[in-house]
Simulated scan of single mutants.
Amino acid sequence: MTEECVCVAVRVRPLLAREVLHRHQVCVRVVPGSAQVMLGSDRLFSFDHAFGPTASQDEVYESCVQPLVESCVQGSNATVFCYGQTGSGKTYTLGGGNQDDEGGIIDRVVQEVFRLLQEKKKNNEGLDTRVRVSYVELYMEELRDLLELQNIHKELHIREDERGNTGHSNLVGTNYPVIS
């Protein structure tokens, strides 16, 4: 894995059926053969990766997330942060569509983490392994832990400990790497 601290990718989703029905027009396009998107007819934006409407879940995962998973299993912390307005495709990219569709990032990370840990165990590496995962949503300036039903109405805070590690309030102070 390269020594990049932050890698930024953009995924442009296709128009939804209701958008086509209402004759909405595509306003963001991926420039072919590049990691750039064009907004309108003249504004270019560059990213580390740019995926168009026909990109598969495999393409996104293999390019952006798989190297993080491998690094995480070797002991590094890794975070996948999805950002965008409501309806932009975050949930689809993270979780996939229905069960007939390809799985999203979460499905693939879970499978890959445990596959890699099983390989390490077979090779007598890392016999004492702990996996700790958080799935946090920031919506309307509210931070919610989506894996803790009790926290739905509990206010969570992002904190930094004395070593500079960050996490939400119920993870700070733990010795476990966080896969977000």
Rank of each mutant, 00 (worst) to 15 (best):
H157P: 00
Q36G: 03
V6C: 14
E4C: 13
E3C: 08
L149N: 12
Q118W: 03
Y61W: 09
G126W: 02
Y92E: 04
D48Q: 01
A50Q: 09
Q66A: 15
T54R: 12
C64Q: 04
E3I: 05
G167I: 01
P53D: 14
H22G: 11
F81T: 05
V172C: 09
V113P: 03
E162L: 05
L146H: 01
L138V: 12
H22C: 13
L94V: 14
K122M: 14
N165T: 01
Q36V: 11
P53W: 05
A9E: 13
G104W: 00
S63T: 12
D48R: 01
C64V: 15
K120A: 12
R29G: 07
I179T: 06
V8K: 09
V172R: 07
L156M: 14
V31I: 13
S88D: 07
V10P: 11
V178H: 12
R132M: 07
S169I: 02
T54L: 10
E112G: 00
V178S: 09
S34G: 12
T129Y: 08
Y139F: 08
E19W: 12
F81L: 15
V8W: 09
V12L: 14
V69I: 11
F51C: 02
D58P: 00
D161F: 00
E4W: 07
S46L: 08
C27W: 10
H168G: 01
G164F: 02
K122G: 09
A55E: 08
H49E: 09
S34M: 08
V69A: 02
E148F: 08
L149I: 11
V172T: 14
S134T: 11
G52M: 09
N124A: 11
S71A: 15
V12R: 13
R163T: 03
E62T: 07
I152V: 14
M38E: 14
C82K: 04
Q118N: 09
F47K: 04
Y61D: 05
R159T: 05
D161Q: 01
T54V: 12
N77P: 03
L143P: 02
E160R: 01
Q111E: 13
Q118D: 08
F114H: 04
Q25R: 13
L149T: 13
Y83E: 01
G33F: 10
S56W: 03
R13V: 15
A50C: 06
T2W: 04
A35R: 13
K121D: 10
N124G: 07
N123A: 12
E125H: 11
L68T: 01
H153T: 07
N98P: 07
S76Q: 15
E112V: 00
H24W: 07
T93I: 06
V69M: 03
T54E: 15
E59C: 08
G173F: 02
V133C: 10
N175V: 07
S180E: 05
S41F: 04
G104M: 00
E160M: 10
V6E: 13
S71Y: 04
F51Y: 04
R108G: 01
G84D: 04
G95H: 02
S46C: 10
T54D: 15
V12I: 15
N124Y: 10
Y135G: 01
G96D: 00
V172M: 06
V31T: 09
D58K: 03
